[in-house]
Simulated scan of single mutants.
Amino acid sequence: MKGGFAAGLLALWALDQAEPGWLGDGRLSWVAAIEEEYTGNGTLAAARAGVLAEAAILLEPTELDVLLAGIGIIWIEIEIAGRAAHVEAAGGAVNPILGIQRVIDALQGFERELDAAHAQDPDPAFAPIAHPYNVSVGTVAAGDWISSVPPVARLGVRVGYPRAWTSDDAFDRVREAVLTATAADPWLAEHPPVFRLNGFRAEGYAQDPDTPIVRAIEAAHREVHGAAPALVSMGSTTDARFYVNRFGVPAAAYGPRTRNMHGTDEAVEIASIADCARVVARVLRDWYAA
Rank of each mutant, 00 (worst) to 15 (best):
K2H: 01
G3W: 01
G4F: 00
A6C: 04
A7V: 04
L9W: 05
L10I: 03
A11T: 04
W13D: 14
W13K: 15
A18T: 04
E19N: 12
P20F: 09
W22L: 14
L23H: 06
G24P: 15
V31I: 09
E37T: 05
G42L: 01
L44A: 05
R48Q: 15
G50M: 05
L52V: 02
A53V: 04
I57A: 02
T62H: 11
E63I: 04
E63Q: 12
E63L: 09
E63C: 10
D65I: 10
V66R: 15
L68I: 12
G70S: 11
E77S: 14
E77K: 11
A81H: 11
A84Y: 03
H86D: 08
A89E: 07
A89P: 11
A90C: 15
N95Y: 03
N95E: 05
I97E: 02
V103W: 00
I104K: 02
I104Y: 01
D105W: 00
A106D: 01
L107K: 02
F110D: 06
F110I: 06
E113S: 05
H118S: 14
H118Y: 12
P122C: 12
D123V: 15
A125T: 11
I129T: 08
I129M: 14
P132S: 15
P132K: 14
V137K: 12
G138H: 05
G138M: 07
G138A: 10
A141Q: 11
A141D: 09
W145Q: 14
I146H: 09
S148F: 12
P150L: 05
A153D: 00
G160N: 13
P162E: 08
A164N: 10
T166D: 11
D169L: 08
V174R: 03
A183F: 03
A184H: 01
P186M: 15
P186L: 15
P186Q: 13
P186K: 13
L188H: 07
H191A: 15
L197M: 06
N198C: 10
G199A: 04
A202T: 01
E203S: 14
D208L: 02
D210S: 07
R215H: 03
R215I: 00
I217L: 15
E218R: 09
E218L: 08
V224C: 12
H225F: 11
P229T: 03
L231C: 14
G235H: 09
S236K: 01
T237P: 03
A240D: 04
F242R: 01
N245K: 11
G248E: 07
G248V: 06
P250D: 09
P250Y: 09
A253E: 06
G263E: 08
T264Y: 09
A267Y: 07
I270F: 06
A271I: 00
I273R: 02
I273G: 06
A274E: 05
C276L: 10
V279F: 12
A281K: 07
L284C: 07
R285W: 14
D286A: 13
